[in-house]
């Protein structure tokens, strides 16, 4: 099946061919990725959709350098993780990648602002400027001072998710991977968050890969990749671009 999508905007940021990944061994082995081919251009917001268990989280983990692939080719921002050692990969993630995890994974003991500031702090920023910068971003996702100083436990699911999103953006990464970023948001805040991401993706050399089940936000996608059983089944242009299928299957 030909799944290569039409080039979107800038030069290629992510390019994968025949990527496979198997969890476990023997009888317990689960083949999560069965040969993924995917190309994403800079300035692009790609949405990854598909049934539960089809390998979406696994794929973005490979793209983000959190998980080793078993076989295939994959370059991300001109880097191949398999050619880098652990510390190099970690440094690469620190400088280039923002995350929104499926469960938001905020640290319970830290305030919303501190949680969102973590990528800056890991990057070695001083506490005060880091928190100031974080506050600006949290404001754009609708946080007031009081909410910024609340602990995750005192925030609603949607608010926590917005903190996680602010955390993924705060250090201006080139690639952001999001696992279900709007699952806990009502449609209004979902739109707000997606507009923010859309805005972000427009910036120079930025790439967003967003996993979602949420039909309401598909309209923000440049392209939509449909996943099925460990493969990309088809890729089509999103509503943002002309509603013309990029490729024929």
């Amino acid at each position: 099946m030909e799944t290569h999508a039409e080039p979107a905007t800038g030069p290629t940021a992510i390019s994968c061919h025949g990527v496979t990944k198997t969890y476990g061994v023997g009888n317990a082995a689960v083949q999560a990725l069965r040969g993924v081919d995917l190309a994403v251009r800079t300035g692009e917001l790609l949405m990854l959709v598909g049934p539960s268990g089809c390998g979406k989280t696994t794929l973005i983990s490979v793209l983000a350098g959190l998980l080793h692939r078993d076989a295939g080719e994959c370059t991300v921002l001109a880097h191949d993780y398999e050619k880098m050692d652990g510390p190099e990969t970690t440094r690469f993630r620190k400088e280039n990648i923002g995350f929104v995890f499926q469960s938001f994974d905020l640290i319970p003991a830290l305030t919303a602002a501190e949680n969102a500031a973590i990528p800056l702090l890991i990057g070695g920023a001083k506490r005060r400027p880091a928190l100031d910068k974080t506050r600006t971003i949290l404001k754009t996702v609708g946080f007031d001072e009081r909410m910024m100083n609340s602990l995750p436990a005192d925030l609603s699911g949607g608010q926590q998710q917005r903190v996680a999103i602010a955390r993924s953006l705060v250090h201006n990464p080139k690639l952001i991977v999001c696992d279900e970023p709007t699952s806990a948001l009502d449609s209004q805040s979902g739109r707000m968050v997606m507009e923010l991401m859309r805005e972000f993706a427009r910036g120079q050399d930025r790439v967003l890969v967003v996993v979602t089940h949420d039909d309401r936000i598909l309209e923000f996608a440049d392209r939509i990749a449909w996943m099925e059983d460990g493969r990309i089944a088809k890729v089509e242009n999103g509503p943002v671009r002309a509603k013309v299928p990029a490729t024929q299957s």
Binding site: P87, T90, R93, K94, F99, D105, I118, I122
Partner: peptide
């Protein structure tokens, strides 16, 4: 451990 994993994902080195 989970939070250390998150930090590690976000680029915290082993040393940190």
């Amino acid at each position: 451990l989970k939070y250390y994993a998150v930090l590690s994902a976000m680029g915290a080195s082993t040393r940190l």
